[in-house]
């Protein structure tokens, strides 16, 4: 087992496109879940709409900027459509509705009747040529040993981490504003917030829609990187990757999404490498073969999410005290 290579693969993922894209997406979820306390279990739906909004627009001959607008617009409308019926109700209703809606969105996008627009199960490819045409990095491979990126990856990483930076700046500005104060108040107690004359429903709706727009941007970064959108990438489990990222990094902290994304992708890739190697070497016994590596990583992910929520709900770096006064 090449431990060095496995760790470097982990590091590569931790600074690479997946970490950046998921960090962007997590900034959105952090606003919804961390600051407002909304249980949006359909975040992957916003990511899907962002990615497809861009891909479909370009596929139909539109410019990329219009695709970005379309993707964000679609995600905002998705938030509105789900939030309007559920946000006056108990938190669980939002969770149930959103997880169902995001999965149905995926099924609709991969269905036969949507194929003329979405490409069905084959998805849409090569819609980000305009973006790569602007690539300032000269052709080549950058880095050392196996820790390297080509000019295309580097360009997408630049976009991704730039968006992360913008997202963090926006989060900072928002959560320290009176509007951000109302978000946190809603998270703590909706009735008390309403009793002080704040329109709780509107605040939640705004948070859901804004977080969805940011989630759409994350989906776009992933799509641009692959030059491919495929409905089967946008499974419900992706939403829970983002939850794990937000919780690991520390919900309702400004830098949480970044810390979480870097940690998550490092652990996820490294674990994948270890499990793969262990199965290959037969350390797990004769019962497992290489087709089990995928399922095992998701099972370990599930276990990890449980343990994280039970033992360190405040995040890897968070302080216990702040959480102890939490009444939720």
């Amino acid at each position: 087992m090449d431990v060095g290579k496995i760790l470097i693969d982990g590091l590569r993922a931790a600074v690479g496109v997946p970490a950046a894209a998921f960090a962007v997406s997590a900034v959105g979820l952090n606003l919804q879940f961390g600051y407002t306390g909304l249980l949006n279990f359909g975040h992957v739906g916003s990511m899907l709409l962002g990615a497809y909004g861009l891909a479909i627009t370009v596929d139909l001959g539109g410019p990329m900027w219009l695709g970005v607008v379309a993707g964000i617009g679609a995600a905002v409308l998705f938030g509105l459509a789900l939030g309007y019926p559920t946000l006056r109700l108990r938190a669980d209703f939002l969770a149930i509705t959103t997880i169902a809606a995001s999965e149905i969105l995926r099924l609709v996008f991969r269905s036969e009747f949507a194929r003329p627009l979405t490409g069905g199960v084959f998805g849409i490819q090569s819609f980000a040529d305009g973006f790569f045409a602007l690539n300032p990095y000269p052709d080549g491979v950058y880095g050392l040993g196996t820790f390297r990126f080509d000019e295309r990856q580097l360009w997408v990483m630049t976009l991704g981490w730039l968006l992360v930076g913008l997202g963090l700046a926006a989060t900072r500005r928002l959560v320290y504003s009176p509007w951000g104060r109302t978000l946190k108040a809603v998270r703590e107690d909706e009735d008390a917030t309403a009793s002080l004359g704040k329109n709780v429903f509107l605040i939640k709706l705004q948070s859901l829609m804004l977080g969805g727009a940011i989630g759409a941007l994350g989906g776009m970064v992933l799509a641009i990187d692959q030059q491919n959108v495929n409905p089967d990438f946008f499974q419900p489990i992706v939403t829970f990757y983002v939850y794990t990222i937000v919780i690991m990094g520390g919900a309702a902290t400004i830098t949480g999404p970044v810390i979480g994304a870097v940690l998550f992708w490092f652990l996820f890739e490294a674990m994948d490498g270890f499990v793969g190697a262990a199965v290959e070497l037969g350390w797990l016994g004769p019962w497992f073969d290489s087709t089990d590596v995928g399922p095992i990583r998701f099972a370990v992910f599930g276990l990890g999410l449980m343990l994280l929520m039970i033992f360190r709900p405040q995040g890897i770096l968070g302080s216990r005290e702040e959480l102890m006064i939490d009444a939720r």
Binding site: F41, F240, Y243, P295, F298, G302, L305
Partner: peptide, 13 residues
């Protein structure tokens, strides 16, 4: 959230 982690653990593992 714990129940979600559990669902992945059971479904895959």
């Amino acid at each position: 959230v714990v129940s979600i982690g559990l669902s992945f653990l059971i479904r895959y593992g």
